[in-house]
Design a protein around this nucleic acid. Structure first.
Lengths: 211, 211
DNA sequence: TGACTATGTGTCATAGACTGACACAATGAC
DNA sequence: GTCATTGTGTCAGTCTATGACACATAGTCA
C-alpha cells in the first residue's frame, strides 16, 4: 500500500506517511468527483478508493468540502500560509503611488498563474466547484476566509483600520473580480497564458466601473 | 392545536393552515436558536416545540438553515419576490444622472429600514446569524443569491450585460457594504433611526475608497 | 535488540440532517 | 355523503461527522 516514500524529503517516517496518505486521499477524491460528481461521491467511496476507513478520512480532512479548499499536499505543513502572507506582503510592498487596483493586479499577474500552475491541484478543485452549483456558493466562503487578510493589506495601503468599510468593500469587490477571472479562465480551457490577459481585462473593467 | 385562523385573510383552509404552521415553526425555531444557540437546537427540538414530526418540518422548510433565510410568513406566497423586484425596479428607475452608488443608497434609505422593521423576523434571523460564526459565511450565500439580480439592475444602469464584469463586481462590493451596515446596525442595538445614518456613512466611505 | 511511549488506525456506536415509501387522516369538490 | 386531493406520522434508511476503545505501528531510550 505504502509507496516509495524515500524520494520525499521531510521529517520522520510518520510525517512522510501522513503527507503521502493525504495526497492519496485528495487525488482519489478529485478523481472520483470528476467521474461521478461531488454529490454522488460519498466519503466512504473515497476512503475505499484509498484503502482506509472513513473514520480515518476524517482524521485527515475535517469535512468532505475541505477537500476542495485544501492548499496542496502540505509537504511542508504550512507552505501555503507562507505563500499567502508572501502575497499579502507583496501587495503591501507595491509602490505607494499605485492604486490598490494596480497593486493587486501586479501581484496577481506575478502569482496567480503560478498558484494554479505548480500542480494541477487547484485547477482540479476549481473545476469540481464550478461543476456543482451548490459548491460555487461554498467556494465564495473559501475566498471569504482570505478576505480579512486582503482587507488588512488594503487597510495598510489606505492607512485605515482593517475593520473599516473601505478596505472590506474593496476586498469584496476584488475577491469577486478574481472569482470571475478564474471562472472565465476555466471556461476558456485554463490555458496558462490566458490568465494575464484576463487579469488585465478584468481590472480594466473594474476600474472603469468603479471610477 | 390549530389556533384561530379566522382573522387571517387568504385562500382555502388548507392554505391558511399551512401558512400558520409555517410561522409557528419559524417563530419557535428562532426562539430556540435565541435560547440554546443554533448548533444546539436540533430540528427535532423545533418540531417538538410546534407539535409536529421532524419529517413534517422538512415539508415546510428545505433545510434547517432555510429558517434563517426565509422571507417572512409568506402570507401571500410571493410577497417577498414582489418586494425584491420592486427594489430592483426602484434602482433602475432612479434618475440617470445618479451614480450607481447614489441610486442604491437612495433605494436603501427608502426600503432597508422598512424591510427590517415590518416585523421583527429579519432582525431575529440576523442576530442568530451574527451570533454563530459558521452561519455568517452561509449568510453571505443568502445575499449572494440576490447578487445576480442586483448585478442585472446595475447592468441596466450601465448599459452593460449582466454577466459583464463591472456589474458583478459592483454588486459584490455593495452587497458587502450592506452586510457591514447590517452588522454594525445590529451591534448598535438595531435602533430603526440609526439605519439611515449608517447607510450614509457607509456609502460615503465606499465612494471615498473607490474614488 | 528489546521494552516503553506516543501516535495512527480500525471497529463500533451514536448524533443529527435529510429523503423515500407507505398507511392513515383531514380537506375540498361534487 | 362520496370521492379525489393533499397533509401527516411512522418507519426505515443514507450520509456526514464525532466519541470511545482496542490494537498496531513508529519513535525513543536503555
Amino acid at each position: 500500500m505504502r509507496i516509495n516514500l524515500c524520494d520525499m524529503p521531510g521529517g520522520t517516517l510518520r510525517e512522510r506517511q501522513r503527507a503521502e496518505t493525504r495526497t492519496l486521499i485528495l487525488d482519489a477524491a478529485l478523481t472520483l468527483f470528476d467521474v461521478n460528481g461531488y454529490e454522488h461521491t460519498t466519503v466512504e467511496d473515497i476512503a475505499d478508493a484509498v484503502g482506509i476507513s472513513s473514520r480515518t478520512f476524517f482524521r485527515y480532512f475535517d469535512s468532505k468540502t475541505a477537500l476542495l479548499f485544501d492548499h496542496g499536499p502540505s509537504r511542508s505543513s504550512d507552505l501555503h500560509v507562507a505563500k499567502n502572507s508572501e502575497m499579502l506582503a507583496a501587495i503591501v510592498a507595491r509602490p505607494a503611488a499605485e492604486t490598490i487596483s494596480e497593486a493587486l493586479m501586479a501581484v496577481l499577474r506575478e502569482r496567480l498563474g503560478q498558484m494554479f500552475d505548480s500542480d494541477g491541484l487547484k485547477l482540479r478543485q476549481l473545476r469540481v466547484i464550478l461543476a456543482e452549483p451548490a459548491l460555487r456558493v461554498q467556494a465564495q466562503d473559501s475566498f471569504h476566509e482570505r478576505r480579512p487578510d486582503l482587507a488588512k493589506a488594503f487597510a495598510l495601503r489606505l492607512g485605515q483600520h482593517p475593520d473599516d468599510l473601505a478596505p472590506r468593500v474593496l476586498a469584496a469587490a476584488f475577491t469577486e473580480a478574481i472569482w470571475i477571472i478564474l471562472e472565465r479562465w476555466a471556461a476558456d480551457g485554463a490555458a496558462a497564458e490566458r490568465l494575464p490577459d484576463l487579469i488585465d481585462e478584468a481590472f480594466a473593467a473594474v476600474s472603469a466601473g468603479l471610477g
